[in-house]
Design a protein around this nucleic acid. Sequence first.
DNA 1: TAATGGATTATGGTCGGACCATATGCTACG
DNA 2: CGTAGCATATGGTCCGACCATAATCCATTA
Lengths: 245, 245
Amino acid sequence: MDQSEKLHGHAATGAGTRRSDAVATELVRMIEAGSLQEGERLPAERDLMQRYGVSRSAVREAIVSLANRGLVETRLGHRPIVRKPDYEIAVDKVGNLVGHLMVDRKGVWNLFETRIFMETALARWAAKHARRDDLEELRAALDANREAIGNSIIFDETDAAFHAVLYRIPGNPIYPAIHKAYVDWLTQHWRSMKRGAGIDQMNCAGHEAVFEAILARDPDNAEEAMRRHLVAAWEFVRSTFPSDS
Amino acid sequence: MDQSEKLHGHAATGAGTRRSDAVATELVRMIEAGSLQEGERLPAERDLMQRYGVSRSAVREAIVSLANRGLVETRLGHRPIVRKPDYEIAVDKVGNLVGHLMVDRKGVWNLFETRIFMETALARWAAKHARRDDLEELRAALDANREAIGNSIIFDETDAAFHAVLYRIPGNPIYPAIHKAYVDWLTQHWRSMKRGAGIDQMNCAGHEAVFEAILARDPDNAEEAMRRHLVAAWEFVRSTFPSDS
DNA sequence: TAATGGATTATGGTCGGACCATATGCTACG
DNA sequence: CGTAGCATATGGTCCGACCATAATCCATTA
């Protein structure tokens, strides 16, 4: 009785028909409005259920919903902590959603193709707009990569780091987030691959070609070098798939 | 008693510590394995709670989690329906997560800048690789767009349709999904803008320039025409923001 | 006979109250 | 003074009930 009255009083706050949706919407509103700051703790479930006049189940489902969206972080025994997701977290969350889309080789290729598209364009951009310190950073990454030839683990890290510099150059925080997504998603598909230093050398040579073209301020060559590098890498990834047509 | 035994028996299936996570993981597994086909109905909550030996609360939270990921669709009084998310849905979901990042102009600019990046590259691609029927499609979209000058609603539709063709040309289903996301996210930020036919004419002229360059197989011009077109469009979007620096 | 409307059933949504598991802080004892 | 253990806070789980909505079935009736 008490509950239903209170809820009706608060009906304006909630959009959906479900109580939990109403609570979730209200909490999101408070987070976006700044009443709940980043890092702050959410009120306890038992508080919220009294405040909004709903049962704890409804409150819990609302919090689960927020947690799934990455807006709060839940730990057992702790009150949920407000988290404003940045681009990386958002992209990370979507990773859970698209796992199904990459089960077959076609899905992986679709994703890898966007990477080629993205990075050829990034190479072109860098050739056109990279500043001196960008080039320095790129050179340092390349040196580290060359140094790591033969050590698969380190090489992969420096490899990713080299590409990461390209994603950073435009200065848009979305690009590094995309890069992280590529690394997270795609690496699952060429793990457990034995390879000799020859492969490393080939990849490093690809990086060098890209870097030289960027240094020479030659967009066409930069793009083409990057494309060759990634297509070769794809051939390698592809060979790890069972049903090779 | 019965429950805890059953759960321990199933402990291997679940990864997380939470019961609901275990159930969610199991359901995802079944969906991915194909035991639950697209469009099929999930077992009733009361079934699942018996099958997995957990309470209904746990089952419900698991289902909420799946629903948030877009893997099932819930309606009151109906059993949840299995949905395998495609690229569009996946990209759409990430949209909900990054909504907070677009409240200020900087966030919107970051997004718009990626669009410029994407579409200049797409224009370049089209100039290089478009086939005859791609060009036909592009021409038809352009004609429709020209026809719609003056009618804001239709013009916006044909405008989006013209750009959509470019996203379709590479033949990767991810690109159209991204386009849809751009349209969904960005249109919220320039709605309720009164504008004269002059703006339409300017935009249409931009499309024509892009098309001509693609038709001429001139990647550099296509890219540059697209950039000019979108930068101009941004200036327009930007003017709708209050705190204009 | 066929249409219609109400009872029945299936199912998700909500509730409240209990207990458990984990974290934190306080207190009392060594 | 320090540490072990108890008290408290809080999330996690369970149960059993009831409500709200949808689909189904069946009997009444035109």
